[in-house]
Amino acid sequence: MINTWRKLFSKHESIRAYTLLSPALILVILAMASPLLLMVLTSFHTQVSMMEIDSTLTLDRYADFFSRPVYSTLLFRSIKISFLVTLVTLLTTYPLAYYIAFYVKKNKMLWIVLMTLPFWTSYLLRVFSWRVILGHKGVINSALMFSGAIDEPLSFLIYSQTAVVLTLAHAWAAFAILPLYVSLDKIDKSLLEASYDLGCSKFQTFWRVTFPLSLPGVIGAILIIFIPTVGDYVTPQLVGGTDGRMLSNMIQSLFGRANNFPLGAASAVLMLLSVSFVALVVTYITKKVSLRMS
């Protein structure tokens, strides 16, 4: 028995590969694939009462979703906010990553660690500290009032979409810096010199060579930020107010107080689909645009 196994094992590379993969594979199947399937399945059911779910398959929950405008509004808002978060994060972290990759000569690792240092503290703590900064009696408003620039607190700072975008962009910055830095650092410096040599200024070189070559990192950062932030519900809850509520807050309440698991599941499935779609489109456009530019 053991001998046959040993023979198979040494003969077939695929058996060796799957054996090595099996712990991860089992985890992914148990903890990712099956809950996901369960959720999709639930989205076709009906909540009858508090504890009872009718498991006849139906598309009614999807009809529910589209018949009530609030869901679509929240979905679009989620996508819009995540899109803005992604944009703000990229615009702020790209220059940092660029600086570390091209201008820092020694101790690059130290710089990276310093950049990511704030992210070693708890996510919740960071969201709360943004409340301290943006709040009605927060750092910014008090300073502005003290200096006499304004008479009453700026209301758009906290409990608004701006607050959600700012907080999320800061929270996810570290995840953007790393892929951006890696892709920029990998660029062969002689390519940039070749571009100068062929007549391009530094600015043109950036758009024709550096940026297109850093695209894998940019796309990586886009996906890493966009996908999870769409589903974030802690930040909108804490700094978003009513204006900053996102679909994920609604899903949370459907699985909680509102107690409509099937509708929650349907919303989640629709969110999953739209996020995948938007992510694909963004990736595609980024690639196209950069090819045109070079």
Partner: peptide
């Protein structure tokens, strides 16, 4: 600067733009 000179260079590793 290099981009305004009447010189061009062939680099040791050729520096062909990969994209």
């Amino acid at each position: 600067p290099a981009n305004l000179r009447p010189t061009n260079m062939v680099f040791q590793n050729y520096a062909i733009f990969p994209h």
